[in-house]
Amino acid sequence: MNGLGSAADIGGILGWGIVVAALMIWVERRLLAFWQERLGPNRVGPFGIMQVMADMLKLFFKDEWVPPFSDRTVFVLAPVIGMMAALLGLSLIPFAPGVGVADLNFSLLCLLGLASLSVYSPLLAGYASHSKYPLLGGLRAAAQSFSYEVFMGLAAMGVVMQTGTFDLRIIVESQREGWYIGPQMLGFVLFLIAAVAETHRAPFDLPEAEQELVAGFHTEYSGIKFGMFFVGEYIGIILNSALIVTLYLGGWWGPAFLPPLAWFLLKLAGFLALYLLLRTALPRPRYDQLMRFGWMVLLPLALLNLIATAAWEVF
């Protein structure tokens, strides 16, 4: 089952990822506006859909400025790491039978590894900016992702235990009869919470909490480097949503009247919308509350889930 997909697949999926990320920015703004009873961007293109393109163009052509007090190399490296990790992660997701970039028999482990590497992006950005707020934001981001990654991995291990494999494709295959959201309900909830925190999305967006830290780790960033952070974050959201769909919602499986890829995208879209709704609906907790919640609530629950699954599998 090892091997890479075709060049078309690679280009298609990665390009698609970026496009969807861009699209999502627009969707988010529109939906936010809708939920907040205002209009949102509606001037550029039909329904303002070209607004993102315009913003991107602006970012591309902005002055390539690196703060003189920063650690130049690392400063440039940081957003690249984040975006690369997210894109590489996307390449491991099995979208549909035959659709997917890489096909490894330990793809879930790889994804976790990439998730742990993505921690470096905000951390190095915080360090390289050589400035107070980015430093704090970077530390917060790292500690948060770092912690929630553990719970995310532990929650996912429930599914691994049920299927006995790290291969996402086999995990999806084995959900033909029933999705894991049923037997792994607790794991699903934990994974969802951890995934939101992992991507620093509201309500867990403390590393970039505007009121406290200006813009967190990317305060000093501008131009295309800022754009990479921005797009990287949205790709991360897509990646995590795709992972949830893959692990718990049966991936491409669905009633036959739609093609598998369509089912996958549909479920993915639902989760993306959920992400946006969360941002609108929930207030932000305090940082220490966030950490305590992670270690005091999520960790024991994840372990409990694991033990329960093991017991279920054994007996």
Binding site: G113, A115, S116, L117, V119, Y120, L123, L124, Y127, L139, A142, A143, F146, E149
Partner: peptide, 10 residues
């Protein structure tokens, strides 16, 4: 790479 080194960086 993902955890121990992050600690170092911290």
């Amino acid at each position: 790479a993902g955890a121990v080194m992050v600690l170092f960086l911290f």
